[in-house]
Amino acid sequence: MPIQINKDVKGREYPPYVITVERGKIKEFARAIGDPNPFHQDDAVGAASEWGDLIAPPTFAITFRHDDGGAMLRDLGTDISRVLHGEQEFELFRPIKPGETYLCRPRVADVYEKTGKSGPMAFVVRETVVTDRSNEIVATIRGVTVIRL
């Protein structure tokens, strides 16, 4: 029996949260990917660069988590065992640097259902806008979560 998900979650905004970018976290993230790029790993190379510091790899904003989407999954009426990652997009207005503090505002932009070759599925589009202390946009993060119904 397929599960029913709560489509009323579409349009819902989740509480904004603040993150501060940690230097060690950028290096750890690059190492986990196996990316030795010195602009992500070497403080001296970063300091001498046009950005004056290390910069994060292009997918680093995925670490800007609050509760792992737990509240959203509960609101949808499902759990993590049914979840797959369908799509991901980042828009980066400037490189992400250590020590910066950002405000992340997540919302569910869309919820829809489709039947694919592996059965009925729901697609949940989540968009998070990331701004800095002067309210300038740093990044947008758009993820599509697939729920196997």
């Binding site: 602009f39 991901q88 997009e89 980042f90 828009e91």
Partner: peptide, 12 residues
Amino acid sequence: GAGRVCRFGVRF
């Protein structure tokens, strides 16, 4: 080059 990517979107 590092820091050049301004949009990056994929499907898994």
